[in-house]
Structure formats: C-alpha cells, structure tokens
C-alpha cells in the first residue's frame, strides 16, 4: 500500500464528491496554485448562516482533488463563522496522509479557495505542522 496514494485518496480523485457548479450561488472564489498552474474554484449557497451547498470545479493532482472532495463533506452544514477558523492542521489531519512540503499547497488549495469565498481572506492557510 502506498503511503500517499491510499485507496480512499485515489477513490476521491477518480470520483470526487461535490464537484460541479451551482447556479444560483451566494459565494464563489477561484484560485491557482502558482507552482503547477492547477486551478480550483468553489461555488457556495448559504442558508441561515451556514454552508448549505458547495461545489468545487477545476483541475489538479490527486492530492488537491482528493483534499477538496474530502473537505467538501465536512464543509457542508458548517457555520460561516467557523470556516474562517479552519487552518492547515485541520485539512492535513482530515486528509490523513503524510504531506511533504512540496505537496502541501496541493492539499491546502481547497481550503484557501473556500476561506477566500467566505471571509475574503485569500492567504495560504497556516498551521502548527
């Protein structure tokens, strides 16, 4: 079994959850990973201060696509004010694989784009790890 490319990572890569577009939508953002040119966008519908529906779109590597897919399940139903508090540790732990320094941005691109859509803060997420 490969440490990085575990079955569930490849499963999410091949069949990502919550990918597509939303119309109408309340929030959206689009981000690039400057290292590789990968692109990830998000559409969000808000209801009662929570993320009601969320869809990612774009293209990227197995790590970035799987991370977006896995995060999407957690993000749905989350209060908007909590989204701004999510950090890199949250994402890396959720992903459950050892992420090297060079692949860190792949794993964090989805959180960057979601935080950008919700809070306007489009900086790269940081964490203790």
């Amino acid at each position: 079994m490969d440490d990085l490319y575990r079955d569930y990572i490849l499963e999410h890569y091949k069949r990502p959850q919550n990918f597509g577009e939303l119309d109408p939508r309340d929030l959206e953002a689009l981000e690039h990973n400057p290292l590789c040119g990968d692109e990830l966008g998000v559409h969000i519908r808000v209801k009662d201060g929570r993320i009601d529906e969320l869809r990612f779109h774009g293209h990227g590597c197995a790590i970035s696509q799987a991370a977006a897919s896995i995060a999407s399940e957690e993000l749905k139903g989350m209060e908007l004010q909590d989204v701004g508090r999510l950090d890199a540790d949250w994402m890396i732990e959720l992903l459950g694989i050892p992420v090297s320094a060079t692949r860190r941005k792949c794993a964090l691109l989805n959180l960057k784009v979601v935080r950008g859509a919700v809070t306007g803060d489009d900086s790269w997420p940081t964490g203790s790890a």
């Binding site: 490969d2 990085l4 490319y5 590789c36 790590i63 696509q65 692949r103 792949c106």
Partner: peptide, 20 residues
C-alpha cells in the same frame, strides 16, 4: 496528473519535473 506522475517516478528513484 503530471504532479502525481513525477511523485511516483521519484518512488522509482527517477527525478523528472512536472508543471507548466
């Protein structure tokens, strides 16, 4: 994805580049 191709090439000890 090319990044994954390069990462897996490295598992075989081979250095190649991926990206734009």
């Amino acid at each position: 994805h090319p990044h994954d191709v390069a990462e897996l090439a490295d598992r075989g000890g081979v250095c190649i580049r991926a990206g734009h």
